[in-house]
Design a protein around this nucleic acid. Structure first.
Lengths: 246, 246
DNA sequence: CAGCTCATGTGAACGACTTTTACATGAGCC
DNA sequence: GGCTCATGTAAAAGTCGTTCACATGAGCTG
């Protein structure tokens, strides 16, 4: 990982040998500490033990370094969402919620990537490769939404799958961005971001007619369960994610 | 508005007379253009026609200027949310949705404020006045959620009002931050952010047991103003926000 | 009105950062 | 062994943020 970092010039020799990677790693650390805005090209160079001009052999400018990090971030993000989705196993709703949690986990565990991807202010649409990576990640959510849409109970008006995907994305991003970052604008919450998002998604899914958890006591006409899977427990803790209504 | 801006030193005299305000306005413009990260203290000074050192007579440093703008932003934000909420008239659900739209409208129409408030990375909890302003704004959403919670149909499990408020906030912020900014990371959408958020909130409310479908065309009983409302209304466009399910 | 004072603005200076340019080094290939 | 080109360096120009000593003049005091 930290191959050859922190070495003095003498023992390193004139050529670094791995500067591009070292710069990316250094930048990642710096962004995690001080945010994308506070991160400095010169600092990254210093951390890698080279002069301030050296990075320009590997990145056109500071923005390109940031872009590279964002891109790498989208790729890892995609992987984690894919793993969480696990092709909808064991059932669509459970898997869907797991994707939400993976989203938050990524924001929490990879603040530097998340920052570069969503909060650095760099124009996603200016770099085709970056935009493509971003879309590949979003497509995981979208594919999950398609599956979910196909299962939605008839008789309930429902939005296009694309819209559902955007809804989920906005919820996850909203929670992550407002509450799930140790980073800067930390606000105190009476609950964990995970709980918050889980409840939000559950209510949303219920609004789409999905059976979430035990049925309301008196209500006879709960929307009919969905063909093959649908029936079982969706990973909701007993009592629901927010306890009993008082 | 642009009182005395752009004037040459000669016609202005040694003293500006209104520098603090001029700097705030200049900064607002610059942030709207280039984002909080790209905004420069020196640029604001230049725009106000004073030397680079002059701003330090009015703000401890660049961050304090940013803070002032964020604070002012939260105050305007609070006003707009209050107006949109209108104490829950004509009925709670309609007013609630109006608040959501006001949120997006603010993000769209006041990008500089929104940026300073939510995307500049300045620590809200470091400045008590700022934090208080932020909380006052959030309290509008929270109060609306309380009212909504009181109306929620019995028989449906429901979260605490505080949680509902956070849910709404995260949806609005998520949509605003991902899609509603001309600013930077613009992504193309098959629908407007307003539609997106409206549908999202409607589904969420339905998940809480609120009736969100359009009124029956004949609509015999318009709900009485405040106390026993709960039944219908909600300003849903005919056909619902996303068209017919296919 | 003269004179004083203090808030407000100026210019110069420092160190840090970004980026460019001309030059140095040495790893890999013939 | 010698060439060459990718990779690194030093130096310089331009920008910022911030501080400091000094200048200005608006408004009070007498």
């Amino acid at each position: 990982m930290s191959w050859r970092k922190e070495q003095s010039r003498a023992e390193r020799g004139y050529h670094h040998g791995n500067l591009k990677e070292a710069l990316l790693q250094a930048a990642l650390g710096l962004i995690a500490e001080k945010g994308a805005a506070g991160f400095t090209f010169a600092d990254a160079a210093r951390m890698a033990g080279v002069s301030a001009a050296a990075p320009y052999r590997h990145f056109r400018d500071r923005d390109e370094l940031l872009s590279s990090i964002a891109q790498r971030g989208f790729e890892q993000f995609e992987q984690r969402l894919t793993a969480a989705w696990d092709d909808g196993r064991p059932d669509t709703v459970t898997a869907f919620e797991r994707v939400g949690k993976a989203y938050l986990a990524f924001a929490r565990e990879e603040p530097a990537f998340y920052n570069a991807m969503f909060e650095s202010g760099l124009p996603v649409d200016a770099n085709p490769a970056l935009q493509a990576a971003s879309e590949r990640a979003f497509n995981i959510i979208r594919a999950a939404a398609e599956r979910l849409a196909a299962l939605a109970p008839l008789g309930t008006p429902r939005p296009p799958a694309m819209m559902m995907a955007l809804h989920i994305w906005s919820m996850a991003h909203g929670v992550a961005s407002l509450f799930s970052r140790g980073d800067a604008a930390r606000r105190k919450l009476p609950m964990s971001p995970d709980e918050l998002l889980e409840a939000e998604v559950l209510i949303y899914l219920r609004g789409l007619g999905f059976p979430t958890d035990r049925r309301p006591p008196g209500k006879g006409a709960e929307p009919p369960p969905v063909p093959p899977e649908a029936s079982s427990g969706s990973g909701v803790p007993p009592g629901g994610p927010w306890g009993k209504p008082k």
